[in-house]
Design a binder for these strands. Structure first.
Lengths: 235, 235
DNA sequence: ACAAAAGTGTTTGAACTACACCCATGC
DNA sequence: GCATGGGTGTAGTTCAAACACTTTTGT
């Protein structure tokens, strides 16, 4: 399968993460500004070379720790491999891209060359990193519908209207608070904490606080159609 | 991002494909039997080393051509990267795994060391290839529900009951022909060809022939819930 | 006529959207 | 009181599963 004695095409494997967070009402991505050529001053995704003793997920978590406190990263998942031979100038570099999420209440300290940018208004990006960000956003949007991945975007406790803002920012359209609560409750994803928030100066009923019942990603709406036949009543 | 002048950890990138086909009423995968150590006589996925001038998809298509006529491959998509440092003995090998499909009416000529095996009864597999096959099956099963990927498993023209067999084999449970036709028709995926088949000796009504309206993968049931608000009536 | 296989009509139920209405608070 | 924001009740719709029934053939 592989011939280790000769290496006709030296190859570097890098890992990259599109770190997404809802901030200031919009879905944003963490980028750093390249100081050096190639593509100096363009914005690129955090990441780096895959180490000898780590798999790609371990590697991206390690490399993210240089930009963001890892404990603030609530979810990491593989997106895809980007491997066009000319995707970066110079020697061949194949990248494994990740989708990574940070809850909206976090505000990590960032290195000076690093900043958040709205996904809907990206600055000039390096290499194929812009395409990776869009793939990440699409994946997130899809998963908001059929998994519990909202837990990774929301703070540990939240009101329904706060959660509505998070979902609306990520999806790019207004979500109804009523229906959001219904859907997530029906699926058993939401739990009351028992706490309520005080209304603002304008008054209004105090809002109940919720949390997500589970904080590991799970598919909650497995396949909508072509389900297996129902078990006979005797079962 | 990468330092090309030194290469502390030589790394090989391979591409692997789980080629799935419905044959003899079950979902099967194409495997070849390794002649040499390591893992001699175990069964492994077709694939090989990524070439210098190709991306991973081009590479897997090229390598599959050595086992199966490429024109018979109806669908190829990335599955995931497998990168555990010890996933194969010896020098580091990172793999990009693919899901690949062959329509059920094809019966490609195979090399002598290659054979189809039911996914539900795999022989002893090499390395992590067994896990890759199961991931491929799970991906296929999920996509049968919310995309038109059936086109890649079915022959160009088929009766509803033939299509039912294909779906049943892939999903692992009996699918109702009635409901299958309803779901696919409602989504506009099926077209009448105008032809009908002759009944067998036992009689029965002649079956209408259908084809899939589209032969490129598309999501047909985008998100079941949290849809964007309906456009106002005036639109 | 009868059996067999294909295809349609119709009921039931689940799940989601939309909207009306009620609740609890500040001023 | 009344405005404001939170929460529930309840149609109405869509979509899919289940099953009865009709259609069209071979024997």
């Amino acid at each position: 399968m592989t011939d280790a004695t000769t290496d006709p095409s030296p190859l570097v494997h890098e890992v990259l993460a599109a770190v997404l967070q809802v901030r200031q009402g919009s879905l944003q991505v963490l980028l750093w500004e390249r100081a050096l050529e190639p593509h100096a001053h363009r914005w690129s995704l955090p990441g780096g070379r895959l180490g000898a003793d780590e798999d790609v997920e371990t590697s991206i978590r390690r490399q993210l720790a240089e930009k963001v406190d890892v404990r603030q990263v609530s979810h990491v998942e593989q997106l895809a491999v980007f491997s066009a031979p000319d995707r970066v100038p110079g020697p061949r570099v194949v990248a494994t891209a990740f989708l990574s999420l940070v809850p909206s209440h976090m505000d990590p300290e960032l290195p000076g060359d690093t900043a958040w940018h709205p996904v809907s208004a990206l600055p000039e990006t390096a290499f194929d990193h812009g395409a990776i960000v869009l793939r990440a956003r699409n994946r997130l949007r899809a998963k908001l519908s059929y998994t519990n991945i909202g837990f990774a975007l929301a703070p540990p406790e939240f009101t329904v209207s706060a959660l509505r803002s998070v979902y609306s920012a990520a999806l790019g359209y207004k979500v109804s608070a009523t229906n959001l609560q219904r859907v997530l409750s029906r699926r058993g994803l939401l739990e009351h904490t028992g706490e309520t928030t005080k209304p603002g100066r304008a008054g209004g009923r105090p809002a109940a606080q919720f949390r997500f019942a589970d904080s590991t990603m799970a598919v909650t709406d497995p396949f909508a159609v072509l389900k297996p036949p129902a078990a006979p009543k005797g079962q």
